[in-house]
Write a protein that binds this DNA or RNA. Structure first.
Lengths: 135, 135
DNA sequence: CCGTATCCACAACGATACTG
DNA sequence: CAGTATCGTTGTGGATACGG
């Protein structure tokens, strides 16, 4: 937890990761969307690449100039769970209106939320869970 | 998400919340544990109280001087899910060794992890979940 | 203990300009 | 389009000192 917070506990890092997972992958788009300066974005993007959350891909749409985009690595995609937890929490406790997006099961089409489950899929409320120190 | 990140996307905020949820609730203990200056801790703690994540409680152990402690509000406890998601992610992707704590079900005693479930408890892998825009 | 106040060094940021 | 360079300003954080 502490390491994660030290590494990614930064407004910009979190927001960039969100945008990229939403499909905003280009430098200028991120810059415009997040209203941040080139320098700051450059700084954070490099750091995310270093850490291994993002990968920089250069590609060329036929005929046009080459472009660069930042894509999530496996590590970065897995972090989506944290972002999603933040979104659920914000929806519930910040009175700013609900997020317009939801996650649904590809099988049932049902809406999904984060919950604590054991290896048999039995759900426990977060408040009821007991923290224990491992042997 | 963006609001949550703007509000709490700060290393210190996250670390303080973690410590308090671990039971470190006093100013000096937090200061020592997190190796931060009085000024910074004072700043962040007040902000967390303003936001409504923490409540300041004064109490007096019989005979001794009054003390203050910071306790999580309901809002703050709910944020534990985010912290837990960060911990699971860090365990999986930062090679710093696993956290020694786990969450267990009070009923079955089984170890718990965060997963996406629908209203019937059916689990979907995070990578398989489909984001959709609500109507 | 539990903080607030002050000082100061330095990191961070936006604005702007510039390059391949 | 994707950055790097520079600059001026603001923010942050540690150290220290000090009051309830």
């Amino acid at each position: 937890m502490a390491d994660t917070a030290t590494l990614l506990g930064d407004k910009w890092m979190l927001l960039i990761l969100r945008e990229v997972s939403y499909g905003v992958t280009r430098f200028d788009d991120l810059k415009r969307e997040l209203k941040m300066s080139s320098a700051t974005l450059s700084n954070r993007a490099s750091r995310l690449v270093e850490i291994g959350m993002l990968e920089k891909h250069d590609y060329r749409e036929d005929g046009s100039r080459p472009r660069a985009q930042y894509l999530l690595t496996e590590m970065g995609r897995a972090f989506g769970k944290v972002l999603w937890a933040m979104m659920e929490w914000g929806d519930a406790y910040l009175g700013k209106g609900k997020s317009p997006i939801e996650l649904v099961s590809p099988k049932s089409g049902k809406s999904l939320t984060l919950a604590l489950v054991d290896d048999h899929g039995a759900v426990t409320e977060f408040e009821d869970a007991q923290p224990v120190v491992k042997a």
